[in-house]
């Protein structure tokens, strides 16, 4: 994967871009503070989940390359990112065997079956997450209280559930800000949301760290800043309009922006270089579609969170976005179709 930057110069346009490996490494650096905050907030169980998804994703990629007699592609760090991202969008007390399965699905069905890195239609981590959501709807929506007093030396027993067995319920389960609002109509303070004093998936609560990481990547030109910006603007405008119409039934736009996995999804998942459009106009449309879908699913859908499905749907139509907004070639009448 090469990041394409626009240079205005006469030919030949030869530019040495950052290699896949460098970009992927930097993405990991950008993700680590938010992941570390997740471990700080949720304790050793969250660390185990993150380690499981990351290590198993790398191992499975290596294994699949081996059995299909290809050169192992582990060293480009993309599998590690997929694993880390998957872990970050799972609940902190998620059973490890399910986390392992999620990694297997992410790498196997999300990426490898399409031909490996550069050919995946969807963001692999989200494919794994969507499979887990459909397969184990209860464990994936069970959230334990963040900042428990014994979180650093007590491993939650649900994390260590035996393979194929139900996780035991222990500890105090709490609601995420989104589910609290959706089902009980309880609002959460914006300060708590921004600082991460809330329940949620491991990597989604450290909002500040996620934004800082995103800014770093955008500054290094390793992330298409238009995608998150487009998503944020759409979400803010759309949910703001709903809030103006009825401010008791719908949450405020600031709440919508800072709650759930929107930051994590918009900055690190929607920007998947392979699954997002390639034209810069297409990228704005893509971001707007994700934003509208997120708000629609959150406000009117059955589920409290919609970032995952919004991004997957937008991934599916991203080639068509490129196709639709392709400019007419000068001198021709019909738009050329990308085949």
């Amino acid at each position: 994967m090469r990041k394409i930057t626009l240079h205005i110069a006469t030919s030949p346009h030869v530019v040495k871009g950052a290699s896949t490996e460098t970009i992927m490494k930097n993405v990991i650096y950008a993700l680590l503070p938010a992941a570390a905050f997740g471990v700080y907030a949720f304790g050793i169980s969250a660390l185990l989940v993150l380690l499981t998804t990351t290590i198993s994703a790398v191992a499975i990629e290596h294994f699949l390359c081996k059995i299909s007699k290809k050169e192992s592609t582990v060293s480009d760090y993309s599998a590690a990112i997929t694993g880390l991202l998957l872990g970050m969008c799972l609940p902190p007390d998620f059973p490890l065997w399910m986390a392992f399965m999620g990694s297997a699905i992410s790498i196997g069905l999300g990426k490898f079956i399409f031909g490996g890195l550069g050919y995946n239609v969807f963001n692999p981590a989200l494919v794994g997450r969507a499979f887990l959501q459909a397969t184990f709807p209860v464990p994936i929506t069970t959230w334990y209280q963040a900042f428990g007093p014994d979180r650093f030396y007590h491993i939650s027993s649900s994390v260590l559930a035996l393979p194929f067995m139900q996780p035991a319920v222990d500890g105090v389960s709490g609601a995420t800000p989104l589910s609290a609002f959706k089902f009980d109509h309880v609002d959460t303070q914006t300060y708590d949301l921004a600082m991460g004093f809330i329940n949620g998936s491991i990597g989604e609560t450290g909002t500040v760290f996620l934004i800082l990481g995103g800014i770093y990547l955008a500054w290094r030109k390793m992330l298409n800043w238009r995608i998150p910006v487009s998503i944020f603007i759409t979400v803010f405008v759309f949910s703001g309009a709903a809030y103006l119409i009825n401010n008791t039934a719908y949450p405020s736009p600031v709440f919508t922006l800072f709650s759930g996995g929107l930051m994590l999804g918009a900055i690190y998942m929607a920007t998947d270089m392979v699954a997002s459009p390639i034209t810069s106009m297409g990228v704005w449309v893509y971001g707007a579609i994700i934003g509208i879908l997120v708000v629609m699913i959150r406000l009117w859908g059955g589920l409290p969170e919609g970032v995952m499905y919004a991004i997957l749907l937008a991934n599916a139509i991203s080639p068509h976005i490129d196709n639709l907004i392709r400019p007419r070639v000068y001198g021709t009448t019909n738009k050329l179709k990308l085949s």
């Binding site: 459909a134 184990f136 559930a161 194929f164 067995m165």
Partner: peptide
């Protein structure tokens, strides 16, 4: 034949 604590894979009885 599975033990009671078997975690059912909900997706498997769905069309997907």
């Amino acid at each position: 034949f599975m033990p009671d604590s078997f975690e059912k894979w909900v997706i498997m009885v769905l069309p997907a």
